[in-house]
Nucleic acid binder design. Sequence first.
DNA 1: AAGAGTCATTAACCTAGGTTCATGGATGTA
DNA 2: TACATCCATGAACCTAGGTTAATGACTCTT
Lengths: 188, 188
Amino acid sequence: MYEEFFKRYQGVTPVSRECWDQVASGMKMKSLAKGEIFLSPGESSKTFAIILDGVGRHYYVGDDGKEWTKSFAGPGDLLGAYAEMLQGLDSRTFIEALTPMKILQGGKTQLDLMNEPQWSSLWRKLAEDHFIKKENREYEFLKFDAAKRYESYLNTYKHLDQYIPRKYVATYLGITPQALSRLNKADA
Amino acid sequence: MYEEFFKRYQGVTPVSRECWDQVASGMKMKSLAKGEIFLSPGESSKTFAIILDGVGRHYYVGDDGKEWTKSFAGPGDLLGAYAEMLQGLDSRTFIEALTPMKILQGGKTQLDLMNEPQWSSLWRKLAEDHFIKKENREYEFLKFDAAKRYESYLNTYKHLDQYIPRKYVATYLGITPQALSRLNKADA
DNA sequence: AAGAGTCATTAACCTAGGTTCATGGATGTA
DNA sequence: TACATCCATGAACCTAGGTTAATGACTCTT
């Protein structure tokens, strides 16, 4: 069930449980295998999902083929190309399942339903939360070296860390897996 | 006048010109001297302003005394500790005038006036715009070296660049003034 | 069970950018 | 006019992290 998500966000909207359920009832329960891609560049950014179980990764791939991880997501988190959705663009990023996942998938239908004034405070809160997260990351890139960013990663994602391969942690920190190994050796 | 700002945001709200003017009429026209501080850590993040003329800089100061620039702002842009305001915290950052400035300053009174449903789409748009900017900066820190980030800075701030001392450009890029000098020498 | 990938780690070497120090120009002030 | 700051630049040297390459542990496939 999507209780986790509901609990997190019901407080910020005046929307009744019935309205939430109406939106949710149109969404589809899906399973993703480990390694399966949920969203690829070029696909509609209106596809999104609530994670019921499992861990996902949201990442860019550069022209040189290198991957850079934007974020990880666990149960109760959203999966989707939010930045592109806001700008009316197709997805420019990948989202993949790091573990087997259970998700509740929505799309244009749900977004249209939620394009009513009563939902606007939810949208505002979502945008603000996203902004605060990214600004914090800007702060860390400006002020912290890789070791401190790793500490911060552990604080943010300690509940997911055990499911995340080291090489993806590295691309989240903006360093190579080799450099991450060095960090671990250094502070041991 | 605040026409510039009004033009930029009127399109996203159903709010009448009269309501805008009502909010604006309570705001105070102020002048800042070059180098003057508009906002300091510990002060209320409810203080904000619309820039009528001049260039401002928004920055952190670390425990080691080092400064890191978050953003620059010119005519029509907002001045304020937005992230802190969202979180109900006092400002953690400085905002200073890089040139003599003319601003229209507001505070709690204006924020309260704008805490009405009719303004909510403006707030949403503001949060989304801020998010998109920061996510783009995250992308650049992950994928670009200092030279490419400098290019991107020039694109974003070409209209303000001539008013911004090199050392602040450097702290915006996350490098030292010496490293910025090297960059300029290299691509000459 | 054997072979093929993939991943984490290590090591050797290299480079972008930091650190420190020095210089000259520009601006401000007595 | 002289003195003091502050800023941009430059050079010498140093370090965090990149690059390349090698190794062993795991997992998948056949």
